[in-house]
């Protein structure tokens, strides 16, 4: 029987690094936190530019059913992805959005809504493309499913050589933003 199964969906548009963000979280859980982490992703022409998603199941025992139909944690980095995937989120779930790119409707069903201007922070760091790693940092701080050291390790292992420092900086910025939001609110 699967124990303590956490279902996560990370969504956005093609090119935002959604898949790499999920890969890093999964790798952190599987290789560094020593949990089971199964990542599946929607592929193909329909994913380029349009809404794309990565599905992640993290568990203390072997993952049997690999897909995520009703995520407990949903990350939306684009409006289109929000429109498409928000209805899947379970009541009481955690919704993480890109603050400048997603205009959410009022949260209901006990859904906890947290927002981060990940793109803006990435631009401040000089490279817009690290917005996914900023988001990973934020996710790590607010979601309580992967350890922060585990994620740092997974980032170092996964990003292109020579970009480790930039990506770790991006992680710290997202992580701190999440920590502050948690401790002090908006």
């Amino acid at each position: 029987m699967e124990q303590s199964r956490t279902e996560i969906k990370i969504t956005g548009f093609g090119g935002q690094g959604v898949i790499l963000a999920a890969y890093i979280i999964g790798k952190a859980a599987a290789l560094f936190d020593k949990k089971e982490a199964t990542l599946t992703q929607s592929f193909g022409p329909e994913a380029r530019g349009g809404a794309c998603s990565a599905q992640m199941v993290i568990s203390n025992s072997k993952v049997l059913y690999p897909y995520v139909k009703r995520p407990q944690i949903l990350v939306c980095l684009s409006q289109e992805a929000y429109n498409k995937f928000e209805p899947e989120l379970i009541s009481g779930g955690l919704l993480i959005i890109e603050k400048d790119l997603v205009k959410p409707k009022p949260a209901e069903n006990g859904i906890q809504l947290l927002a981060i201007p990940a793109t803006r922070i990435a631009e401040e760091l000089g490279r817009r493309m690290v917005l996914n790693i900023v988001t990973v940092g934020f996710f790590t701080a607010v979601a309580d499913v992967v350890g922060e050291e585990a994620v740092r390790g997974a980032i170092k292992d996964s990003v292109p050589k020579g970009t480790e420092d930039l990506n770790l900086k991006a992680f710290e910025r997202g992580f701190q933003y999440g920590k502050n939001l948690r401790e002090h609110g908006e």
Binding site: A37, T38, L39
Partner: peptide, 9 residues
């Protein structure tokens, strides 16, 4: 496809 595109340890 599911096993081919599934990432695990």
């Amino acid at each position: 496809e599911c096993v081919g595109h599934m990432t695990e340890k």
